[in-house]
Write a protein that binds this DNA or RNA. Structure first.
Lengths: 219, 219
DNA sequence: GGGACGGTTCGGCGCGGGCCGAAGTGTTCC
DNA sequence: GGAACACTTCGGCCCGCGCCGAACCGTCCC
């Protein structure tokens, strides 16, 4: 008879307004930082931290710690489906946008910014191009000619670490972070090669960006 | 953004051990009385009453008041499916029996006892037969020759009301209750014509019962 | 090194709600 | 009418937990 207790346990995780708001935000399939979720739900950072720990321990969310950030996302499409089932039951009336489990995994693969650099399929494409050009090694260390290439692109070394490998959340492949990654992302955004879409961290490669990348030999 | 609050609300209903136990018991598709559920969950009758009110108001359960009893059942197969989804997520490990939404609506139509008389398809069949024999009118009032028939069957009038119409839960048709209905049910059980199956209120017409009913002209 | 910042831990506050027993209502039976 | 019984309502207890601010840790930038 104890299997309904497990049900009560997972229901308890979703029975709180704040945790439900977290899950609702994460239904877009992207990874959010703890602070973003705290702001989104209108709650203190300490409160959000505790909620996230509980949701992760309950198997609803997975985390991805990176530097001083704690990224968090739905544990998988099965969680999205569960949330959709419950939301569908709760209110077929007051549902502003239709939840589609497909949109979750689809959005997961979209291009996005990762703190201050590019990630997602876009970030992977950039990394591949830079490796192909010899700007960085396969381990994402900047080469001697790579530094020249970067400087021609407006990059100026600072005290910040030039390059860092950042494990891509959706692609499970490292992409370029660090000062060089941030610089490239900033330049792409300034030139309009990469445009933000929506209010979140999602981005897309604009037509101008496609041409620019082609001329640079990135793609 | 408010649609996740509805999710939190329905989750809150299921987040309690006792309410979850109620729903788990009701997953068999039958209607339970408030007391049965209270005993099942090991909780006071007053506590169970409050829980049931909340579950009904939340749309998870429907009630069926009858005399001094309050029957309660899942609001429909969609509730069973929701419970199954959540239970499947909660524990694919500790699940003693597989939950099948189909079993819910199937069991709802089975024969069963209703307090002290027959209900379900079996009760409807009995009522139709008695009407056909002229024992009772279509309104379930015992006729003059019907009383003779009942006395030949061992029925002895008492101070208890001879017959009452009881709205059948699954068939939406009245069936025979009262002293006559209780007497017939008791006799059928004593003769082995009707047998209890499982530990609940479900019953089935045994082969001997089929023959007996045929000889009596009930079916 | 110093400053900024994201995240975590901890103590404490206050509300919500699950529980019971007692008293009350309505129904059934004799 | 009286007794038994299913259920409900109410008052009160107490635990759980959601929340915050303050202090602290680790990372990043310069």
């Amino acid at each position: 008879m104890g299997f309904m207790e497990g049900l009560a346990q997972v229901a308890g995780l979703l029975a709180d307004r704040t945790r439900a708001a977290f899950c609702g935000a994460l239904l877009d399939g992207r990874a959010w930082t703890a602070r973003e979720l705290a702001v989104h739900a209108g709650v203190a950072a300490s409160t959000a931290s505790e909620h996230l720990t509980r949701l992760i321990e309950g198997g609803l969310l997975v985390e991805h710690r990176q530097g001083r950030h704690r990224y968090v996302a739905l544990a998988g499409p099965h969680v999205a489906e569960l949330l959709e089932s419950m939301a569908a039951f709760a209110g077929p009336d007051a549902r502003p946008r239709s939840l589609r489990a497909a949109s979750a995994s689809e959005a997961m693969a979209r291009g996005r910014t990762c703190y201050d650099h590019l990630a997602g399929q876009l970030g992977i494409a950039l990394r591949s191009g830079l490796v192909g050009l010899g700007v960085v090694t396969a381990e994402l260390a900047v080469t001697e000619p790579g530094m020249v290439w970067l400087k021609e692109f407006g990059f100026e070394p600072s005290q910040r670490q030039v390059s860092r490998a950042c494990l891509d959340w959706t692609e499970r492949v490292p992409h370029l972070a660090g000062a060089a990654g941030a610089h490239l992302c900033r330049v792409f955004l300034e030139r309009g090669w990469v445009r933000r879409i929506g209010s979140g961290r999602a981005v897309v490669l604009a037509p101008a960006g496609e041409q620019g990348w082609r001329e640079l030999g990135i793609v």
